[in-house]
Each structure stands twice: as structure tokens, then as C-alpha cells.
């Protein structure tokens, strides 16, 4: 590693210049200081601050922060809106992640085959992700508008009953999930495509010589070798789904009746519309733990897979 070499080189120079060994030992710490400063200012301090605020009562009624221990957490967990928000968020993850990853995998496999339309398809799959999300949400909002939207017009042509997806609490969240899937699938397809193309051609050729058809090749060779990429993509998809805010903000503002109120939107409204800093901080800490858990599982699983791969 480059860094450790520099560090090792620096130590003798330093000791030569000064007789005191303590000053030389400081050099590595000085070298990491700039990096540490940014981590401290933009990660450690905000996290610490949000944890401290989550233990204080501070809202419009009590503008001066007062220590309240775990009261904010107790209030949060007994709040029916919070339970609804948590349910909505998890439901959204369940509705978005499996279809987005499976479709992404199928797209990747289609594009991976050498064909004249491959580059066109690649562009087609990928372009939703490069569009600004607010524009995407606005366009979908128009598509789903009752009476005038494309969806309604199509239903009118076919003499079907007109869908009013965003008007009903039971269909509003699935409607957002459809947009989420449309948005994300191409993005995951790119990772999976890279994974597929990283598979050693010799392994595939060897399998073909052994008489493996396209199905066996996919199930027994490609998928197992793609597994580390797949785990990474699933984690990414889960975190992205947990972090959904923009779609909700533009399309439904959490309504109707909190049916699309997801975690980040709830944090946003609690802090910025209701000025309840204590409750918003507690919500943020809970969210942090959730994202942390997902990431930890990812790191654990991927490390074990890498270990197996290098051990074999």
C-alpha cells in the first residue's frame, strides 16, 4: 500500500531530525488530520449532535432544549403515525426491491448477449436514472392524473374503469413503487451487466464444452459467480428504497391520509413543518440504525463471500 510506505519512510527521517521519539510518532496522526477533520465535521459531529438532540425535548412548545432521556423514543414508538410510517417504508422496500433487482438481472442478461440492438437497449434501460428525479415525478404525476392523465385516457379508450391511483390510500403507495421500479431497474442492470462481463469467458467455454445449454449456463455458472454483485445490488436497492423522499414529496406529500408517508418524509415534516427537533432527532437515530443494520449485513455477507472465493 502506498500510504504505509510513506508512513514507514517518514518515521526514520523524523527520528533523524529530532532525538525525541514522541514527536516522530506524531507524524502519522498529522498526516491523517485533514481527512479526519472532514470525517469529524461532516459525519461524527452531525451523528453525535442528532443523538444528543434525540435525548432532549425541544419543540415549538418548549423552544429551550431540556434533557428528557428516552422520552422522545417512547413517544415515537407509541405514535400510531410512526407505526404507519414504518409499515409504509418496509412495504415500499418489499414492493420495489425484488422486482427492480430481478428485472435488472433480466435486462443485464439481454444486453449481455451480443446483438445489434444491445447499445440501444443499454441506453433505453439506463436513461431513467439520468433524468432529474423531480422531473420524473412530475411526468408520472401527469400520467397518473385522473380524467386527463395518460393512464386515464388509455382506460377511456379501452372502456375500462378509470384508475385514480393516487386518490386512494390502498393504491397510492403501489403507484409510487411502480415509479421507483421504473427509475431504479436500469441502474441495477448496469452493475449486474458489469458483473456478468467480469465472469471469466474460459469458465463459460469450459461449461459449454461439457454440454451446458443456456439455462444450465445461467443457473449453474453465471448466477453463482454473480452472487457477490447481486448481494451488493440488493443492499443498494434496499438502502435506496428506504431513502425514498423525492417521489413522495412531489407526487403525494405523504397523503392521502399518511398512506405514502415514508420515513424520510416523516423526519422532514416533523422537523421542518412541525419544528419538533427532539422527535425528528429520535426518528433520525432510528433511521440510522435501520440503514446501519442493512449495511452491516451487506459487509458481513460480502466479506464472507470474498473469503470463500479467495480460499477456493
Amino acid at each position: 500500500m502506498v500510504q504505509s510506505e510513506t508512513a514507514r519512510a517518514a518515521v526514520p527521517v523524523a527520528t533523524a531530525r529530532t532525538s525525541r521519539r514522541g514527536a516522530g510518532a506524531l507524524i502519522p496522526y498529522l498526516l491523517i488530520l485533514p481527512g479526519f477533520f472532514f470525517v469529524a465535521a461532516f459525519t461524527i459531529y452531525p451523528v453525535g449532535s442528532v443523538i444528543v438532540h434525540s435525548l432532549m425535548r425541544q419543540n415549538l412548545a418548549h423552544p429551550v432544549p431540556v434533557w428528557t432521556g428516552l422520552t422522545n423514543y417512547k413517544d415515537t414508538f407509541s405514535d400510531p403515525i410512526f407505526r404507519q410510517v414504518l409499515g409504509n417504508t418496509l412495504l415500499y422496500v418489499v414492493m420495489v426491491v425484488p422486482p427492480a433487482v430481478i428485472l435488472g438481472l433480466i435486462f443485464a442478461m439481454i444486453v449481455n448477449q451480443k446483438s445489434k440492438v444491445a447499445s440501444f437497449l443499454r441506453t433505453a434501460f439506463f436513461y431513467p436514472i439520468v433524468l432529474p428525479l423531480v422531473s420524473v415525478a412530475s411526468v408520472w404525476l401527469f400520467v397518473m392524473t385522473p380524467e386527463y392523465g395518460l393512464l386515464s385516457k388509455a382506460a377511456q379508450l379501452l372502456h375500462l374503469s378509470e384508475p385514480a391511483l393516487l386518490r386512494s390510500p390502498s393504491t397510492a403507495l403501489p403507484a409510487l413503487a411502480i415509479v421507483g421500479i421504473w427509475r431504479q431497474t436500469g441502474f441495477y442492470a448496469i452493475f449486474l451487466l458489469a458483473g456478468l462481463q467480469g465472469i471469466d469467458k474460459e469458465v463459460e467455454n469450459a461449461a459449454r464444452l461439457d454440454g451446458a445449454g443456456p439455462v444450465r449456463l445461467t443457473l449453474n455458472i453465471r448466477l453463482p459467480l454473480l452472487w457477490p454483485t447481486l448481494v451488493f445490488v440488493i443492499t443498494l436497492a434496499m438502502i435506496n428504497a428506504l431513502q425514498t423522499l423525492d417521489l413522495v414529496y412531489v407526487m403525494t406529500q405523504g397523503g392521502p391520509s399518511n398512506a405514502t408517508n415514508v420515513f424520510l418524509f416523516h423526519i422532514y415534516e416533523t422537523q421542518f413543518s412541525f419544528s419538533n427537533t427532539g422527535a425528528a432527532s429520535a426518528l433520525s437515530v432510528i433511521f440510522l440504525v435501520m440503514i446501519g443494520a442493512v449495511s452491516a449485513v451487506n459487509i458481513f455477507v460480502v466479506d464472507r463471500l470474498r473469503g470463500e472465493a479467495s480460499g477456493a
Binding site: F42, P46, V47, V50, P132, L133, V134, I239, L245, I291
Partner: peptide
Amino acid sequence: INVRTRMSRRQMLRGAGIAGAALGAARLA
């Protein structure tokens, strides 16, 4: 909104972890 999405996505690519998530929340604010 775009800055937030792009940035948080880049963090996730780095492997993110707990710290990244915190940064995402802080950036939202």
C-alpha cells in the same frame, strides 16, 4: 434534491455503512 440523490448514491457505492447513512440524513437537513 438531485444533489442529495446523487451524493447519497455515490456514498453507497463506496460501501457506505452507518456513517454514510448519517451523512445522507444530515445532508437532507
